[in-house]
Design a binder for these strands. Structure first.
Lengths: 122, 122
DNA sequence: CGCAAATATCGATGTTCGTCAATATCTATG
DNA sequence: CATAGATATTGACGAACATCGATATTTGCG
């Protein structure tokens, strides 16, 4: 491909991506490695869910910046195992922290991790 | 729940989320509506994919800030219909714009839309 | 120690999503 | 107008995911 006649391109003629040739002849286009893209996508997937977005919002707006499952479950209107699952996803992504006090499990948002999300699109 | 003995809470005793009671007696906890959460999640889903993140990166770093499918396809190493599909997802999310010049389809990033993504976590 | 309450884990299920091959559509060109 | 090349669409398939019921684990209390 990219080897026929000439398209009506702005300045140049034939299309050609900005490929940054690395070693071994492997071309790595764009300023983003496959691994970097995979890592960023994993973090974004943890946040690309309406329930988890609401959980983050509720926790952040709660008194003292923390909330427990017994409050979050009725707040989002889902079954307790489902809420527990979402909290686990957020925790494993580093977006919230768990602290168990007595029978209750308290969660709080990790601001620096939210900043990591924003910095992906800086 | 939330009606037994007293947990070792920081200042208060029994857990209780910051519920902002709306009209009709329906409680809307956190500063995020279900619709808002759904809208934000939809935008984030469009970006929570390693291939689409790389496409955005490649397009942005290309000459003139634009690239066509014939360059993007070999760049990400996937089949042409797959790349076309991802570009459609990004386009429908408003993250990129399509312009057809001749046989080629050129794509460029919409910066304001990227800013929308960042503002979700402001 | 045994019971009750809060949370986590497991297994199953329906849905969404990424991928590709085949095909259709569109555009320039001869 | 027929042909070739670039891109979009369709249909199918497997993987990943959200959800729930049932159950296990943990903790406080009598």
């Amino acid at each position: 491909m990219t080897t026929t006649t000439a398209p009506n391109a702005p300045s140049a003629s034939a299309p050609s991506a900005t490929t940054t040739t690395a070693c071994c002849g492997i071309t790595t286009p764009g300023g983003l490695t496959r691994e970097q893209a995979e890592t960023n996508a994993t973090l974004l997937k943890a946040v690309a869910d309406p329930v988890r977005l609401r959980l983050l919002s509720i926790i952040r707006d709660s008194e003292g910046g923390e909330a427990c499952v017994c409050d979050l479950t009725p707040a989002v209107g889902l079954a307790q195992p489902t809420v527990s699952h979402h909290l686990k996803v957020l925790t494993e992504a580093g977006l919230i922290e768990r602290e168990k006090r007595g029978t209750w499990a308290w969660f709080r948002v990790v601001p620096s991790r939210l900043e990591d999300v924003r910095s992906i699109f800086a």
